[in-house]
Amino acid sequence: MGDYSDSVLDRRELSEHTQPEDAFCSIKISHRRKRPSRDGLGAVVAGRYVILDVIGRGGMGIVYRARDLKTDRIVALKAPRYERARHGTDFAQRLICEARALARVVDPNVVRVLDLVFEDAQQRRPVVVLEWIDGTPLDHEMEEPSVRGRRGIEIAMQLVQAISAVHRAGLVHRDVKPSNVCVSRERDGHCVRLVDFGLACPAQSQKDAEDLASCVGNARRASVFMGSASYMAPESMLDGRDTPSADYFSFGVLLHELFLGSRPRPVLERLHCALYGDDETDACVRQSGIPLPLARVISETLQWNTNSRLADSREILSLLREASRELPPAHEIGVD
């Protein structure tokens, strides 16, 4: 079975995100007719990526740790579960959309897509090749009290930079939450990366994003209200509007959880409280004892009205820097 000469990802897009030795753009179809094990361990995908182990599994997809035979480095592979791919679900299409969305974003705080290949000759099982991040999801990092101090501010600032980069690429992430933020320890400190672009969509109509918009639109029709309800903005949940401002609302929920130890009331519950004048979210944040600049970021990113919501990355970063100066390195907020 012959190789395909063109990648699903545009060659120009890939070249912007990978080093020359990484720019392996051709799609290769695996010649293996049988999987070596139930989980595919030991299989060689597209003649290049050896599956080492399973690092994540969901109802629709699976994530592997693999070795790139060409560069001898560790990568992550994201693919639909075999039974899902066999029945041609929309998840496979969303994976392709995710790879294309990621290829548009260039930022050290956003996970890099390295390749997009197909494992089967019918091209029903796409495999997205991502950089391997040796880190911890933020929801696990939150278990450490020290993250509520200056370290948490540093994490928040890098996340703002990632969200801003996504928006500059003309996209809305639509699923900003702690489990989609990976924190790795590097020589110069902690590095934060925003991951999982499976629900990303264009922020506005753009001629150069028509294919992506169509692709995501098809997936969206089959995934209305998919996402994490606890982090969704009111406009996303109530009328399906996807704006950059919605990502900052999700960011505000994340900050509330990070520094106050819990998420604010869910959107629908807050709506009920607001109707009866009983939404105390702002008051709780401002009376929590955290630095006022940080309280302002949390309170104003959680505003219902998008016109009143704080969604300017430069202003948010400025306030976070101010808050950082008010916290000693080892300060623990709300911990006795």
Rank of each mutant, 00 (worst) to 15 (best):
Q161P: 01
Q161V: 00
Q161F: 01
Q161W: 01
Q161Y: 00
A162I: 08
I163S: 02
I163N: 00
S164F: 06
S164L: 04
S164T: 03
A165C: 06
A165F: 04
A165Q: 00
A165H: 00
V166P: 02
H167K: 03
H167D: 10
H167Y: 09
H167V: 03
R168V: 03
A169V: 04
A169Q: 07
G170T: 03
G170H: 05
L171Y: 01
L171M: 07
V172K: 01
H173Y: 08
H173P: 03
R174T: 10
R174M: 12
R174Y: 13
V176P: 04
K177T: 06
K177N: 12
K177I: 06
P178I: 02
P178E: 06
S179M: 10
N180Q: 12
N180I: 05
V181E: 01
V181T: 11
C182G: 02
S184R: 00
S184Y: 00
R185Y: 15
R185N: 11
E186L: 05
E186M: 01
R187S: 11
R187Q: 13
R187T: 11
D188W: 10
D188R: 12
D188P: 01
G189M: 10
H190F: 15
C191E: 09
C191G: 06
C191Y: 02
C191A: 15
V192A: 00
V192T: 04
R193T: 09
R193L: 08
R193D: 04
L194H: 11
L194R: 05
L194Q: 08
F197K: 01
F197N: 04
F197M: 12
G198Q: 03
G198M: 07
G198W: 02
G198Y: 09
G198F: 05
L199C: 07
L199H: 06
A200P: 07
A200I: 03
C201V: 14
C201W: 12
P202L: 02
P202E: 07
A203D: 08
A203N: 09
Q204Y: 08
Q204I: 04
Q204W: 05
S205I: 13
S205C: 09
S205E: 14
S205A: 14
Q206F: 05
Q206S: 13
Q206T: 09
K207G: 10
K207Q: 11
D208S: 13
D208Q: 15
D208Y: 13
D208I: 11
A209F: 08
A209G: 03
E210C: 07
E210Y: 11
E210N: 09
D211G: 12
D211I: 08
L212W: 08
A213I: 04
A213R: 14
S214R: 15
S214G: 14
V216Q: 12
V216R: 14
V216L: 05
G217S: 09
G217Y: 15
A219N: 07
R220G: 00
R220C: 01
R220A: 09
R221T: 10
R221W: 12
R221K: 15
A222K: 14
A222H: 12
S223E: 15
S223P: 06
S223V: 02
V224M: 15
F225V: 07
F225Y: 11
F225M: 15
M226Y: 13
M226L: 15
G227Y: 06
S228E: 10
S228F: 10
A229Q: 14
A229H: 11
A229S: 13
Y231F: 15
M232I: 04
M232N: 02
M232F: 11
M232S: 09
A233N: 09
A233H: 08
P234G: 09
P234F: 12
E235C: 03
E235T: 06
E235N: 06
